[in-house]
Amino acid sequence: MQPILKVENLTKVFKSNGRPDFTAVDHIGFELMPGECLGLIGESGSGKSTVANLITRLTDLSAGRVVLDGQDISSLSGRGLRDAYRKMQMVFQTPTESFDPRRRLGDGIGESLRNFGNCRAEVKERVAELLVQCGLTPDFAEHYPHQVSGGQCQRAAIARAIAIEPRLLICDEATSALDVTIQKEVIQLFGRLREQLHLSILFICHDIALVQQFCDRVLVMYKGKIVEEGVPDEVIQAPRNEYTKRLIESIL
C-alpha cells in the first residue's frame, strides 16, 4: 500500500544575522499510511510544530522531500500547492485565533469550498452539515470567534479542516489549549471523524498520555531529530532512547 504521506530527509535551518544558524528540523523521515494515526511528541523547541509547517508548506523547506499521496509537493507553489491542500488540512493549537476575528465562523469554514468553486447556496448548506457533524448546531455559522467558547471554536476549526474532505489531517497541539473535559470530547470527535471519513492523522502533541490513548504509532522528537519510533505502549513501557526515558519518568 502506498503511504499517504512520505517525508524524506526533511530539514529546516533558520538563518539569522549575527547568530549561528539554528537547525530546527534535522534530516527527519517517516511515512504515514492511509487510515493511520501517527503521534509526534516532543517538548517545546523540539521542532515538532515546524514539521507541521514544513509538511503543509507554510514554511519553506531547507532540504528534503514531502510526498503527499504519491505526489512530490516540496517545490509546488501557487495553484499546484492550492490543489495539494484539497488532500491535506490542519487544525491549529489556538482555536479562537485560527479564525479571522472580523469574520463569522461560517465564512471561515466555507472559505475552502468557495475557493474550490462551490456556489454560495451549496456552501451554506454544506457548512450547516459540517457544523452538525462536528457536534455544533447550524446557527454557529453566524457567530464570531470571540462569541463562542474555546471548545466550540475548535469544533468549528475541525469542521473547516474537513470541509473539502481531505485525506490527511494534521493536528498541531489541537487539544492543548482546551480544558480536559473538552479535550476528551474533541478527541472523541477526532476518533469518530477518522472512521467516517477514513482520515489519516498526524497528531502533534506534548501530552504523552493523550498520544498513548489516541495514536497507533508514535515518533519522539528531540532537538530536531526523531529519537524513537514505535507503538505507544511499547515506547512508554520500554523506552530505548535516553531522552525518551527521562521524558516518561518526569510525567507526574
Binding site: 507554510l58 490542519m90 491549529f92 485560527s98 471561515g108 472559505e111 475552502s112 475557493n115 474550490f116 473547516r160
Partner: peptide
C-alpha cells in the same frame, strides 16, 4: 495560515 490552507 488557515486561509492559505483553504486555497485562498
Amino acid at each position: 495560515r488557515a486561509a492559505r490552507l483553504s486555497g485562498s
